[in-house]
């Protein structure tokens, strides 16, 4: 059995924080450039150009794309044959965030209690999602989430009879209502099925998919396309100034659900759409 020390995990998380916040992913850069071709509004084009220029400055100078460096969300896939040693995994992940956000001069945006609202001072705790998977590796995805877009998400427990149209209408209405607030152009994550919390998690995970990659199943790929078209017909445009580009992509994730339900969740992301993944391998344990 392979072993992985929590110290190594902490260091890896700490190292992820700065590049995740300062370097715009290539798929988004490509999507912004593509959007320029179809954008008709002069103000919209100006915004798309500014976001590309912003990405250049952020990467060159190692300063965050956006000042809201988010609440740290971590997706952790643990190979079931891997043994984690040296302490608590959750504590190590939070220690990595603490170190990365402090040493990286990233903004500390977390309050310890939703009502008392005292800043924890180090951007912990992170929101951590664990998954057990086959194998002996540890896969970590850091996806810091800004709240300009997070605040605009929504969830609804639809009736099965509401069907495809009910789901599409709810997704479009959510983006419509969000308007300029989530800093369009946005990425729209849609989770359909499961239970209430499963739908929300699917919507969040949908934001991790590469922009421009359609759903592997044709039925859902077509729904994504249809939704993107309807959303871009809203006219909200870059930053809400009016234009063709309200969303860069719509990603749907689905899961089996109950005979009586049709849960749907929408998680919006701004163009920064930060996420970065690393895979850690353990060392052979000494017999």
């Amino acid at each position: 059995m392979k072993e992985l020390d929590v110290m190594e995990i902490e260091a890896a998380v700490a190292e992820l924080c700065l590049p995740t916040n300062c370097v715009l992913n290539e798929d988004i850069r490509k999507a912004l450039k593509q959007a320029k071709a179809s954008e008709e509004s002069a103000q919209g084009l100006e915004v798309l150009d500014s976001l590309l220029k912003n990405a250049e400055i952020a990467a060159e100078q190692s300063i965050p794309i956006c000042q809201d460096t988010g609440m740290a969300v971590l997706f952790v896939e643990i190979g079931q044959d891997l043994h984690i040693v040296g302490g608590s995994l959750t504590e190590a992940l939070n220690a990595g965030i603490r170190q990365g956000y402090t040493k990286g001069y990233l903004r500390k945006s977390v309050v310890a209690d939703p009502f008392l609202r005292v800043n924890t001072g180090d951007n912990t705790p992170a929101v951590i999602h664990y998954d057990m998977v086959p194998g002996d590796k540890l896969k970590l995805t850091l996806a810091p989430k800004g709240f300009g877009s997070e605040n605009m998400g929504a969830l609804k427990m639809l009736k099965p009879a509401d069907g495809v149209e009910g789901v599409l209408d709810f997704v479009v209405a959510t983006v419509d209502k969000a308007g300029a607030n989530p800093c369009p152009p946005v990425i729209v994550g849609v989770g359909i099925g499961g239970t209430m919390e499963k739908a929300a998690l699917l919507a969040k995970k949908a934001l991790l998919r590469e922009v421009g990659s359609g759903h592997p199943e044709q039925f859902y790929a077509e729904l994504e396309h249809k939704l993107l078209q309807r959303i871009n017909n809203l006219g909200i445009g870059p930053q809400g100034y009016g234009g063709r580009t309200t969303a860069l992509a719509v990603h749907i994730e689905v899961f089996p659900t109950h005979i009586a339900g049709l849960p749907v969740a929408v998680n919006l992301n701004c163009h920064a759409a930060r996420h970065r993944t690393i895979v850690l391998e353990g060392k052979e344990a000494l017999g």
Partner: peptide, 20 residues
């Protein structure tokens, strides 16, 4: 309306875009 990131060494201010 802004809450910037802390200034790293050599800068006077960090990232500083608008909030809602």
């Amino acid at each position: 309306f802004v809450g910037p990131t802390p200034a790293p060494p050599g800068r006077i201010i960090g990232s500083a875009g608008p909030t809602t």
